[in-house]
Amino acid sequence: MRNITNTFYLLLMLAISLLGFTSCDDDDEGESVVLDLVSDVHATDDSGIAYFDLEGGTTLTQADSNSTTWDIAFNGSTIMINGGTSGPGEGAAQIVEGIFETITSAPTSGYSVDSADGYAIPSGSGNGWYTYTAMTEPQHAILPIPGVVIVLKTGEGNYAKVEIISYYEGNPDTSTDEFADLSTRPSSQYYTFQYAVQTNGGIEF
């Protein structure tokens, strides 16, 4: 039940932000923005990597990894962007701090690509998008760092913003005993995230 409520909240927030956006923006840029909440993106094939197309809103597999269709990929707790060493696309990314809804335009510079020296979104606890709780409650959990919004260029070169919301199946309440107990905690590597992508080539969301 709680998970459904969480998803309801998020949709409500999205609806409010959409309303806010359309009401105060009277040119037609808004119609080219794809805004969505995606639940439980999870790798389904042996590669263990889930590829996602933001413009199309679909999860892809490794079969599509060599195309520019996918934009963001999830490999365990590592996030890859379609560019540099990770793919053939124009993808690059950076972390912008803020509340998802209030980030209304993408920065014009400061993007990195995945490379042999490291990913555009650095891996490791506290370095990129997540924190590993280790011995603090809930123990041994991967939690998205609040205020971290990934702003990226998609494989096709559009600007997008992504906020990771949960790393666990069903976007669970992380304050429950059920979540704290490792034997009853939902499976990991199920990404719930909200995103917006501007398909008209502009930087406004």
Binding site: N6, Y9, I99, L143, P146, G147, S166, D173, S175
Partner: peptide, 11 residues
């Protein structure tokens, strides 16, 4: 920023 552990919303 913080994230409400119940709703996972950021504020």
């Amino acid at each position: 920023y913080t994230r409400d552990p119940k709703t996972n919303l950021t504020s």
